[in-house]
Design a protein around this nucleic acid. Sequence first.
DNA 1: ACGTTTTAATAAAACGTTTTATTAAAACGT
DNA 2: ACGTTTTAATAAAACGTTTTATTAAAACGT
Lengths: 336, 336
Amino acid sequence: MVKNMDNKKITIKDVAKKSGVSVSTVSRILNGYEQNFTPRTVRRVLKARDELSYEPDYFARRMIMKESKTIGVLIPDITNPFFSELIRGIENILYKENFITMLCNADLDQEKEDTYLRELTRRGVDGFIIASSAISNESINATLKANGHPFIVLDQKKAEGISDAIITDDYTGGQLAAQHLKELGHEQIAIAMPKNAPANIQKRLSGVRSIYGEEQIDLVDAELSKTGGRAAVPAVLKTTATAIFAINDEIALGLYLGLSEAGKKIPADYSVIGYDNIDMCEYMVPQLTTIAQPIFELGQITAKMLLERIENPSKDWEERMLPVNLIERFSTAHLN
Amino acid sequence: MVKNMDNKKITIKDVAKKSGVSVSTVSRILNGYEQNFTPRTVRRVLKARDELSYEPDYFARRMIMKESKTIGVLIPDITNPFFSELIRGIENILYKENFITMLCNADLDQEKEDTYLRELTRRGVDGFIIASSAISNESINATLKANGHPFIVLDQKKAEGISDAIITDDYTGGQLAAQHLKELGHEQIAIAMPKNAPANIQKRLSGVRSIYGEEQIDLVDAELSKTGGRAAVPAVLKTTATAIFAINDEIALGLYLGLSEAGKKIPADYSVIGYDNIDMCEYMVPQLTTIAQPIFELGQITAKMLLERIENPSKDWEERMLPVNLIERFSTAHLN
DNA sequence: ACGTTTTAATAAAACGTTTTATTAAAACGT
DNA sequence: ACGTTTTAATAAAACGTTTTATTAAAACGT
């Protein structure tokens, strides 16, 4: 901290004294009302400010101004490439607008989520981005909605007219994946996904069901992680499926290892298709065919929508749906 | 925000009025000096607090108390698994101590780093964790050291008696990798690493040089990313090396793709060894042999050391070195 | 030449806390 | 019974800003 002679923090008073004007004059000049003062006064104040390296005290300032230029972001796991990419998209916009990101890694732990939510509220963040699934609608309503804090829920929850919302086209995504496998001649497919999947993931399943009949689908339980994918392989082997739809790429990466351990080749023995298009897909051998979500852009748009809401709290709720598309690589092949 | 009848924020005054005591009494009771008051008064105050859902204003509080319970963390790229794992370690400790993490993703962009550093200072964070390499020692000195802000530099920089420091045993790491390849009979190796690598990475190279002679080593330029690894393959192919030491795992992942594109098999044609042991290693086919750094623990210890420094600013500088070890998997094999 | 408007600047209030110094009443000790 | 200490509580100052209302002086208009 920059100190004055008495070893105390430099305040606006020091600047005022040094430039021979009042505190209010310094404040006004430093906050963009220079045109109300003579050039000479302005010059003096600026000079004093620079010579003392004066920086307004953040807390004193915020106490009056009631805005913190901070956004709280709640995610389940920063280690998951989907979320780290999302964060980059968010941060990319926020940085440009001089906002700072408060990262809260909630670990799918409901208590931790609630704690973070309360703590962020206490700290007066200007808005919330919530991409964590465990969080209950009640928590959101009690802590955010009821108190009029701007927030936006992402990816896992349907907002249903209680907030802005942004989703990707999961139904079409599921269709696209299924269509691709069908065209390759696969008549029996396995889908690796968690039993209690969030709504957006359920939608992908519905998409598949619009292409494949119920008896052509083997649902295989798998956590949304590499470990989950690896562990799901034995169950897959028990089915008659010739292709596997991993409901996210992380699961697909686990499948690669599990299948290899079982002596199976991709795509000779099993075609594998993922979902998300995290950048690791391109680096697998064989490269992973997947449904691409525009993750970075998703983050950007989320941040933008939230900032607009903060700017104009009473505007109508906005809903955005982002398109997805199939990226064909080398983990899927024609049957035989 | 919780409001009172006049639709204004609930303040300590409201609580005081409701419980029929003075503002200072409320403050003291709510800040852990209950033993100075009669149980009856304490009860009343607590009751009023609860009924009004009073939360002390963060900014007013911080203005007086001069601590923000916030740590700023500066990293180059959250998308890199090394850093996301590191963040988790940091966050793991910070959360327990009721600190919040401010994440700054600096993109190896010097200007962005400086901006973030200044912004964090302005916001009065209690301490800094700096794991970003582009940052200049001058910036650190000017912004942090000179102003007595607690900070800790991680991984890439030598602190040299100007701050606490924590490093991993990079020299031994390099030795371990080299030794392993030597034992497998490789007499000529390539090392994929950036030309202007930070100090810790240079140390790994020194470690290798203690095992292999200068003429047995082919230095191949590669950025610290998957892209970098992939792009380095043509250069590797031009050498007579039979094994490749990727200076971090990300490069190794890129090598997998590049080699596969060149029709080369791991480990039959090339043995590959990485560095870091990010969790992806286990999921590659073949699984990647690597030098393991205790990344999560590194984050934890860093956070702990910083908190101790904040607690006790005048204690002696502390330096810690964490061990590394070889994880043998299936990407390295005996020559022929 | 004098009342009115504009300009340049400031004094004082406000933001919502914590902390320090003070006080009135009760308890204590002989 | 009366001076002293302890207890329970508070008034007032302080933290460092921004903003509102005010003022003195200058400029203006006829």
